[in-house]
């Protein structure tokens, strides 16, 4: 097993979950209704917790402690896709991002549950069950608001169009696709993308939303290589503020 290939895979997964988890937590106290406030806060807790477990696997492979990895890196050392770092925007954007991201990750973990890298397979199997609640939540709202009023439909449609090129960035190819596949660690971003497209198209077709023609879109790549939008560094500064002042702070 080549550790570099595993680490690259673990870092992008962990960073995606940490950054989106942080964005989700920004809904705490601001949700459009109490249940949604709790839902995004709860998903934040799940995602940050899952990222911690991924950083722990990295730690076992010789990387620094999870807290150090999470709080002490700068933006060019983060491997999250740009979709996760975009500001929450209005609720429609957060909802669409949640829908697009969580279906991709539900499928990613389903694939990784069969990984030849056993620690990752075990953890993925566990996370897969938890994500069912996230996709269930996304599904319920997309189906409901995607067929409700003119305003809800047009808001979701605009957000879908805006988020789609960034969503394609989830599947930015790794330099190690061939090794990951031949070693049975992960079937690859392309396989994941095809499964994801089938799934989200199926849900969107049950609403009055239109699936954007992805063949005309340029995916927003770069995140996996540390190239980010202007929105990531301020998020990291805020997230790490306490840790950077006092690494031993406890509560």
């Amino acid at each position: 097993m080549n550790e570099i290939t595993i680490k690259e895979l673990l870092y992008k997964i962990a960073d995606d979950q940490l950054i989106l988890g942080h964005r989700n937590s920004e809904w705490t106290g601001f949700g459009p209704l109490l249940e949604e406030d709790i839902a995004f806060s709860s998903m934040a807790q799940d995602k940050v917790g899952q990222s911690q477990a991924m950083y722990q696997l990295l730690h076992e492979l010789g990387e620094a402690e999870p807290d150090t990895v999470a709080f002490m890196r700068n933006e060019d050392q983060f491997h999250n896709c740009q979709l996760t770092e975009l500001p929450n925007g209005e609720y429609d954007f957060s909802l669409i991002r949640h829908f697009l991201f969580d279906f991709a990750y539900a499928i990613r973990f389903e694939m990784l549950a069969n990984s030849s890298y056993e620690p990752l397979a075990k953890l993925s199997k566990k996370i897969q069950g938890e994500l069912r609640y996230h996709t269930m939540h996304a599904n319920t709202w997309i189906k409901q608001l995607g067929s409700a009023t003119e305003e809800s439909i047009s808001r979701l449609q605009n957000s879908l169009n805006e988020a789609m090129p960034y969503s394609l960035g989830i599947f930015e190819p790794s330099p190690y696709e061939a090794e990951l596949k031949s070693e049975g660690i992960f079937e690859g971003e392309e396989v994941l993308k095809e499964k994801w497209l089938a799934k989200i198209t199926d849900v969107i077709n049950q609403t009055q939303l239109q699936m954007p023609d992805i063949s005309t879109l340029t995916p927003k790549y770069g995140g996996r290589k540390g190239k980010h939008t202007e929105h990531l560094q301020p998020l990291l500064d805020e997230m790490a503020e306490v840790f950077r002042i006092d690494p031993t702070a406890d509560w």
Partner: peptide, 8 residues
């Protein structure tokens, strides 16, 4: 009512 409650 919602799959998310006061604890995970």
């Amino acid at each position: 009512k919602t799959p998310f409650g006061p604890t995970a």
